[in-house]
Design a protein around this nucleic acid. Structure first.
Lengths: 339, 339
DNA sequence: GTTATTTCCGTTACCGGTACCGTTGGGCAC
DNA sequence: GTGCCCAACGGTACCGGTAACGGAAATAAC
């Protein structure tokens, strides 16, 4: 039975002490090349497999990195995780994740459970954890990176961009297009705090420009192309004269684009549709829609690197606030300028 | 400093032994309710947080469940992970994942690393691991679930459907539409073994029906809507008379649909576009495209449940092969029949 | 040849919990 | 009061590794 082979067995078979066997397996110093080779050969023959659990307990540090995201059905978070993966590939670190479903209580339990694995670092989405979760994160002696948002106070490290400014920036850009009748479509606004911030930024900026009548179509269901389609239909039915619709994200905006294609509503001549995220997909749409490009992958990579730079360090380094650039575009199909 | 509070500290503060404190915290038997309350109160005051690493070492079993997927940029695997999450939510199990990028060598290293965490179970994508990885999985004394594919021999448990039959089934359905000129567009066929199986099923079935001339447009780049668009353009430029194009997945097919919209090629009258996966998105497309609906979430859920059912069990139960149904449709927009 | 360095390996003491078994004391039957 | 039983708790020995330190043999320095 392979999995019962322990380091002591290997050591015994090789005629060395457990300690030497350990060093040989890890490639540590103070072992002769001959011994290393012999130990490793025997380990392979015996089917020995290291035990991370014991190793982690012994040197009181794991190679785990916890990732807390609100959802997996949103491709954006997959891309963030993908960026994390890229950054830690080859470093021996293992990501493990949990999904909150935008539920603060679940987030709290998740963070607790993760912390009790004593990970090397924690990456959590957003800055709006509730009090108990924040307390937990603050008390933890490990690097914590909050991502995707910079509107608020970070517990430790922070990588993202201002969601409020994202909404405001898109509003500015839309106003410059000389439009008059602005609408809004959003989902999950009861729990997606970042979507709320974007909407607030959007509405505030419109208000500053004297635009206070902004018909909205909202729902608590989760974002999807299908929802975008039906909600656009509803909004335009009630307010046919709208010449701008801002959506809480690209999925909804794509749904809006599909609705307009079917109804032969000219986009963007008659109505500009503006989403958020800059999904790859929107660049291929037959219809030009506006969006805000965000570099999710870079955020994941930067967050993971921030943890890596602290890995092994006992003392806390400089706190970090990294703002990644975003880019507002009226036609998502325009080529991306290399940065 | 919170995180240095150990169970011994709690025990000392509560005036009980470590053992009693341990039992109190876990809600085990043989502790009086009064003591439990007192210990827990003190633990909370001290900010005590359990240590999964030590606990796992002590009782030699973890609550981790490893998930190996080839990619995260494909929404399909996010959905699988989402299904896994659903199944284990509330059970105290923690998923941790790794991404192979369709690279067998990386998969091997990943599986090794995961196994050295002694997880409660392992979920890996596909049946086509290389020899060394298979050996590793076979030797491991834990439930291993291979998902997404049933064409081949499983190491232990298996949840999925026949990729070969999926391709064949779609070919059958397309032939029934009375089409004559079949084409194919695929990406990543150098490494995505499941896509290869679908194509083989497709081509085999066409051949059985006397259709041997099947123009193909392939690429090693990863699937995307953009790739689908350009590859469709290329294929139709070379073979304008095609009246069916089968794609290796929905992303490419959607790109094809977008191309046809822009060029005013009538879909499906002039050409049927058939994808694979049944992404939610395709149901909202203005243009009807064909697809095969697969229940990714169910696969994830079933895989996780299979592991759960063995959790804690020492002996191996019955091996399992669970085939989940798939559904071929010519118009993805048609309503999904409840199962 | 003697002393100062390396090089290489072993001993000891944990890391922070839990399983297992033993012990204590109070309630109850008689 | 004696004996018995069970609830409630404690002592000990690990789980499988690694850090820290120490010591002996081999090499270098003089």
């Amino acid at each position: 039975m392979h999995s019962k082979v322990t380091l002591a067995d290997v050591a015994a078979a090789a005629g060395v002490s457990k300690m030497t066997a350990s060093r040989a397996m890890r490639g540590a110093k103070d072992v002769s090349p001959k011994t290393v080779e012999r130990v490793r050969k025997i380990a392979a023959d015996l089917g020995y497999m290291g035990n991370h659990v014991a190793a982690s307990l012994a040197n009181s540090r794991t190679d785990l990195i916890g990732v807390v995201v609100p959802s997996l059905s949103n491709i954006v978070f997959s891309e963030v995780m993908s960026g994390i993966e890229d950054a830690i590939a080859g470093t021996g670190l293992q990501p493990f994740f949990g999904v909150t479903g935008y539920d603060p209580e679940r987030e709290y339990l998740l963070v607790r459970q993760m912390l009790s694995w004593r990970p090397a670092g924690l990456i959590v989405t957003g800055l709006d954890q509730d009090a108990q979760t924040r307390a937990l994160l603050k008390a933890a002696t490990l690097p914590v990176v909050q991502i995707m948002d910079t509107d608020g106070a970070a517990v430790d490290l922070c990588v993202g961009f201002s969601q409020h400014e994202a909404g405001a920036g898109m509003a500015d850009l839309l106003i410059k297009q000389d439009r008059k009748r602005f609408g809004y479509v959003g989902c999950a606004l009861d729990r997606d705090t970042r979507a709320i911030k974007r909407r607030d930024g959007y509405l505030n900026t419109l208000a500053k420009n004297g635009i206070t009548e902004v018909p909205q179509q909202t729902s608590t269901e989760r974002s999807s192309v299908a929802a975008g389609k039906t909600m656009t239909a509803a909004l335009l039915a009630a307010h046919p004269s709208l010449d701008v619709i801002y959506y809480s994200n690209d999925d909804l905006a794509i749904g809006g684009a599909f609705h307009c294609m079917e109804r032969h509503i000219r986009v963007p001549d008659q109505v500009i549709l503006a989403g958020f995220n800059g999904l790859d997909l929107v660049a291929s749409l037959p219809t030009p829609i506006a969006t805000t490009r965000t570099s999710r992958r870079d955020i994941g990579t930067a967050a993971a690197k921030a943890i890596l730079s602290r890995h092994g360090t006992k003392v806390a380094n400089d706190p970090l606030l990294k703002t990644v650039p975003i880019q507002h575009v009226i036609d998502a199909r325009q080529t991306v300028t290399a940065k």
